[in-house]
Design a protein around this nucleic acid. Structure first.
Lengths: 367, 367
DNA sequence: CTGAAAGCGCTTACAG
DNA sequence: CTGAAAGCGCTTACAG
């Protein structure tokens, strides 16, 4: 036998036609039981595997999903946001369980993702993770919708978004974190992170934060807010800025764990104690949050569930089934940086339907 | 225009044959300049992309590499070893830079990787990352070599290994870490991690550790060694075990950062101070090592360089060029857990040639 | 410099 | 239940 055997080789050895080999291998019910067994045995003996390229070409499918990871350009090359890494892990696992391969790639906003992946039949659909500025990103999403690309993204579920998304309930998360801080008797609570349309997830967290303050009869103090992207460095800077303004501050709610960790460092650098002087709460519950000193109280996002939903939703889109955006309930993980110890709180799940006609629009765009 | 345009559509519109379209798109020098321009313009207009499945089928290549990640089965699902995650990042980037796609997958030892990826033309070669027990793993490597699979793995560069590997110089790393601890005046230095053929990398680190002790006229004390796989939990247990034995101990060299972090926790739990009572040094320099309290002194592995070498070496194998195993120099990152502050040390690079005839053997195995 | 033709290895209507 | 045949969309010798 020269080289890799093909289905014709199997056919000859099994004494059937090549077509029957194909049918047997794909498990068609029509194939006679004994014939199938014979074919399978020969295939096993020759270590035969179906050529993916040929089969994909014929069926016009790829059995592959592509995960496109956008990185904040300011982040150090080697340090991908750990939260995304954990999403990556759960997406990979979910794909494997469903028999799909996963292509992964770090992306810049400049590429034509549709052409790069789905159009050339490398992947049946795309999963989008992370982005820099949402306002830039949004136009790329619109282009994908216009091209009829199958895609889901992880991110804030917004009313007018192009396509659909799976994301945490950031408002609920901000609310829970801030309420918890208030329950510890904190009153001068700061917010670290961008709170604008450029970063919708952070904005939602900020809105939850503001809502909790208002519930308690307080108003968010602009002196206690500082912008930050999701890095330790930005967290350090933002906390430093707030402290330098001199306004009293007894707690900080950071829009991400990375920001919180940087903030704690800034606090320590000034001789302030966490949580005695300033309580700190983060967001994401990255693995590192358990190892900080003190361990970081944070809002956990269920990456495992998120990964499964992302994959399942995308697969449904590929099969042209009905799909909708989903908001996942966050969970407050109380550790020590907030100055308390109590049971984790839960908030209920929420499901936001896809804007009417979005699916139809996509289908039309393709024809 | 119905659906995705193919090369024949382009040909018609450009007024040439389909073959010429293919040549122009692939940049064949033979194509007339003006003809090429015309074809490219039409292709751009129609948003044409070459169908990967068809082109791969024809050329019998995939332009894709597969990254197989083996996880320690004992590790919690959601927590992939951060060191592997950072390797994953650099491998992904290296692939993208070289125009290759990357398929990623978590693997169990039970699968037939050759059949799953290379044989069915999903990938041109495999990158192997992580493993449980090397002794089990080794037989799988032998099978790959026998099947003529193109693969490289990250791991200890061993004299009699099947195939080749890119790995850190673990002996040098263990030596540097332990010498540094000795230089701080520590004498009762423990080792946390498996030191057996089941875990060759840890074994090499242990050998470096033992060599440093011997240089200083000391002997490794078995009471100060405890087995551990690379998890915080195992590190906690191992440190606890050593402490419970009651032997005096003023420093711990952990075979990985995760182990070191677990060990520090065990130390704190017993009211011991790091580094005052017990100095701690880890291995890997995962991102978390900077955020521990105190920040962890550790042996850094250059994941960025490693990722590039892994990809480049594999690509050379695929092109049937000469390749060899490579040992990368580690770098001691001095932070505070060791009780010192000084410049990082460097050790020189080492290159280990592939055992004679290994490449030829591979080629023969395939025919 | 370009075209006509073969063929990569499958899958699936169409017949029987 | 099975076979003969067409065709998925390319790439590349072979001719000219």
């Amino acid at each position: 036998m020269k080289g890799k055997p093909n289905s014709l080789d199997i056919a000859h050895l099994a004494g059937v036609s090549q077509a029957t080999v194909s049918r047997a291998l794909r498990g068609h019910a029509s194939v006679n039981r004994a014939t199938r067994e014979r074919i399978l045995q020969v295939a096993r003996q020759l270590n035969y595997t179906v050529d993916k390229n040929a089969s994909n070409l014929r069926t016009q499918q790829s059995g592959t999903l592509a995960l496109l990871l956008f990185e904040d350009p300011t982040i150090d090359e080697s340090n991908i946001n750990p939260f995304f890494l954990s999403m990556l892990g759960s997406i990979t696992r979910a794909c494997a369980q469903r028999g799909y391969d996963l292509l992964i790639s770090f992306q810049q906003l400049s590429r034509d993702w549709h052409a790069d992946y789905e159009d050339c039949h490398k992947a049946d659909g795309l999963i989008l993770l992370g982005y820099g500025d949402y306002l830039d990103y949004r136009s790329r999403l619109e282009a994908l919708v216009a091209q009829g690309t199958h895609f889901v993204r992880w991110g804030a579920v917004l009313a007018d978004q192009p396509g659909l998304s799976i994301g945490g309930d950031n408002h609920a998360g901000g609310l829970a974190a801030t309420r918890h801080l208030l329950a510890q008797g904190r009153r001068r609570i700061g917010f670290l992170g961008h709170a604008s349309l450029h970063a919708p997830e952070f904005l939602e967290r900020h809105q939850g934060y503001a809502a909790a303050l208002r519930e308690a009869g307080l108003t968010p103090d602009p002196l206690l807010q500082a912008d930050a992207i999701s890095t330790e460095g930005a967290g350090y800077e933002a906390a430093s800025l707030v402290l330098e303004r001199g306004a009293r501050c007894d707690a900080l709610f950071a829009a991400s764990d990375l920001i919180a960790i940087g903030a704690m460092r800034a606090l320590f650098a000034r001789g302030l104690r966490v949580p005695e002087d300033v309580a700190v709460v983060g967001y994401d519950d990255i693995p590192m949050a358990q190892s900080t000193h003190p361990p970081l109280t944070t809002v956990q996002q269920d990456t495992r569930h998120a990964g499964e939903l992302l994959v399942d939703t995308l697969l449904r889109m590929v099969r042209e089934e009905d799909v909708q955006s989903i908001k996942l309930p966050p969970r407050l993980m109380v550790r020590q940086s907030c100055g308390a110890a109590q049971q984790p709180a839960r908030t209920p799940a929420t499901v936001t339907p896809l804007p009417a006609g979005a699916r139809r629009a996509r289908r039309q765009a393709r024809s």
